[in-house]
Amino acid sequence: MWRNLKLDGVEIEKVVAEFVIWMPILPYAKMKIKIREHAEGDYTGISDLAIKRKFDGCPENALGDGETIEAALENTIKSFNEKIKEDGFEELTPEDIEYSEWSDF
């Protein structure tokens, strides 16, 4: 099993799911969330869409952890919504976001 591989200086994560999320606040209506499984058995989600934060203009992806794929997905969506709320967005424009490189997703 891949979790049992022990290689010096190497950390392995497995991509276990990818979801398409539709939200009316998004300028192109959708984003993707990729879920990775860590060797320890927990999960992390990351969005392909980054919000350019109002306090510094730097793009920030949503991240979420969980003990299951579903928990990581839910926490990633909550993280995204918290960033929107913190920055006071009513709707996002193409200038407010940045997508990850297509090859990353």
Rank of each mutant, 00 (worst) to 15 (best):
A71L: 11
I35D: 09
S47L: 02
A50L: 10
G41K: 05
D96A: 06
E91Y: 13
E82P: 01
R3V: 00
S79F: 01
S79K: 01
V16E: 04
S79R: 02
D8P: 07
P59C: 08
T68G: 11
D48E: 14
K83H: 09
K85N: 14
E40P: 01
C58L: 14
I21Y: 05
I12Q: 00
G9Y: 04
K54S: 13
L92C: 10
M1S: 13
D104S: 10
E37F: 04
I97V: 15
M31H: 04
D65I: 04
V15E: 15
F55Y: 13
P27Y: 11
E60T: 07
P27F: 04
M1V: 10
G57A: 09
A39Y: 00
S47G: 03
L73G: 03
R53F: 02
W2S: 13
G9P: 06
V10R: 05
D65L: 11
P24V: 00
A71I: 06
E74V: 13
R36D: 13
D104I: 01
L73K: 15
V16R: 02
L63N: 12
A17T: 01
L5R: 15
L26S: 02
F89S: 07
D65M: 12
I69T: 08
V16M: 04
L92T: 08
A72P: 10
I69L: 04
E40C: 07
K85W: 07
D96K: 03
D96G: 10
K83P: 03
F105C: 07
M1N: 09
C58P: 00
A71H: 05
G66E: 05
E101V: 08
D56C: 07
D65K: 13
E60F: 07
D65Q: 13
M1I: 11
H38G: 02
M23S: 04
A71K: 10
F80P: 09
K78G: 04
N81D: 13
I35A: 08
K52N: 15
E67V: 07
R53L: 11
S47C: 04
S79Y: 01
Y99L: 15
R36N: 09
E11Y: 00
E82R: 14
K83G: 15
G41P: 10
F89E: 08
E37K: 08
N75Q: 12
A72M: 05
L73R: 14
K54E: 11
I35W: 02
D8C: 00
A17L: 04
I33N: 10
F19V: 11
T44I: 14
D104A: 03
Y99V: 09
N75G: 05
G64D: 05
D56R: 06
L49V: 14
D8N: 05
R36V: 15
K30P: 00
K14H: 03
K54D: 09
N81A: 08
E13G: 00
V10E: 08
K6S: 15
G88A: 05
K54I: 03
K32T: 12
G45S: 13
I33T: 04
P27E: 11
P94I: 08
F105H: 13
D42P: 00
